[in-house]
Simulated scan of single mutants.
Amino acid sequence: MRYYFYYSIPVLQQMVLLWAILCVLALPFLLLRYRSQGSFLSFRTAGFTAVVLLYAAGVIAYTLLPLPARDELVCTVGATYPRFFLGWSLQFALRDHGGLLDALTSIYVVQVLLNVLLFVPLGVLAGWRWRLSFTVLLYTAFGCSLLIELTQLTGLWGFYDCAVRTFDAEDIFNNTLGAVLGWALVATWQRRARLRGDVLALLGVAPSGIIKK
């Protein structure tokens, strides 16, 4: 956990900087909207857009940053070998720790949980704001995660001479799982609200609690 604490400090700093850059890049689109529609975004829409950009900056910072200097990256054979199989995190945790409890609290399992949590907001946004179906959400989450892993594997698509991080199929699975969980939470909540309305209608009670005549 101490590793993640010290690692997160520069990542958070670069996330804020990247968020500011994304907000600046979004300004031309706001100007185009103003010229075409004669109005800027509402305060609510602008706030939501800022939150989405902050989340995007967080995902990029967590998965790609901090980047090493191009002339300082040492390409070592086998240092970032691709992992195309699932379950290696738990396997390594059990190998390096004596008991199951120690294994479940190891850095390997923490990494799994963080990768799941990383894409939960994407699933929430997809189900709540963008109204995506489960199938579209599944392909979107898988595609975004695959794009991140390929960017790591190719060294930012050839910018570096070798991979900057390890391509991990388990990360793709965990990211996609996180998005599905976020979408499922929204779907469950929405279904609960509809179910409550159906029950009240069946009992002849208005949503305000007034009995219908």
Rank of each mutant, 00 (worst) to 15 (best):
A56Y: 07
Y34V: 06
T45E: 15
L147N: 09
A46V: 04
R95Q: 15
I9P: 00
V51S: 06
Q37G: 06
P66K: 05
R191G: 14
I21F: 14
S208I: 10
L41A: 08
L122K: 00
T76Y: 02
A50I: 09
V116D: 02
R83V: 12
C23N: 09
I148N: 02
R35I: 10
S8V: 07
A103H: 06
L27E: 13
F40R: 09
F173M: 15
V11A: 03
C23Y: 10
R70N: 08
V205T: 05
L118R: 02
A206C: 09
M15S: 08
R70F: 06
T76F: 00
W157G: 09
D168Q: 03
V205N: 01
T80I: 06
A184P: 04
A201F: 06
G87D: 12
L122T: 01
V59P: 00
F85Q: 14
L156R: 00
Y139A: 15
Y7V: 04
A79L: 13
Q152S: 03
V180E: 07
Q91F: 11
P10K: 01
G204D: 00
C162Y: 00
G178Y: 00
I172E: 06
L104W: 08
G204E: 00
G38K: 08
R131C: 07
D71F: 15
D102E: 14
V116I: 13
G182H: 00
K212I: 11
L32F: 06
D96P: 02
A187P: 01
P10S: 01
R70S: 12
G143M: 14
Q13F: 11
L31N: 09
G155S: 04
D102K: 05
L114F: 06
G123E: 02
R131H: 12
V199L: 11
E72G: 10
Y139I: 15
Q190K: 14
S42W: 03
L18K: 06
F48K: 13
P68M: 07
I211G: 05
F40V: 11
L203N: 06
L17G: 15
Q37N: 10
L64G: 01
Y81Q: 13
F48D: 10
G182T: 01
L22P: 07
Y62W: 14
V205A: 06
G47A: 11
S208L: 11
D168S: 04
G87Q: 10
L12H: 08
L138Q: 08
I107Y: 12
A93R: 08
P10I: 01
L30G: 14
V110I: 15
T140L: 12
E72A: 15
A79C: 07
D171S: 01
F134Y: 10
L202V: 07
A93T: 05
F48W: 13
A103S: 11
L177G: 13
L153W: 04
L137K: 06
G204T: 03
P121D: 02
L90R: 13
L117S: 04
L177V: 15
A179E: 00
L22W: 05
L132V: 05
N174K: 09
Y4F: 08
L114H: 03
Y81I: 06
W183K: 07
P121T: 04
Y55E: 03
Y139C: 15
G58Y: 00
R191I: 12
R196V: 15
F40A: 14
G209E: 02
G38H: 09
Y55Q: 05
F92T: 15
F92V: 13
R2P: 08
S39Y: 09
S133A: 05
Q37W: 09
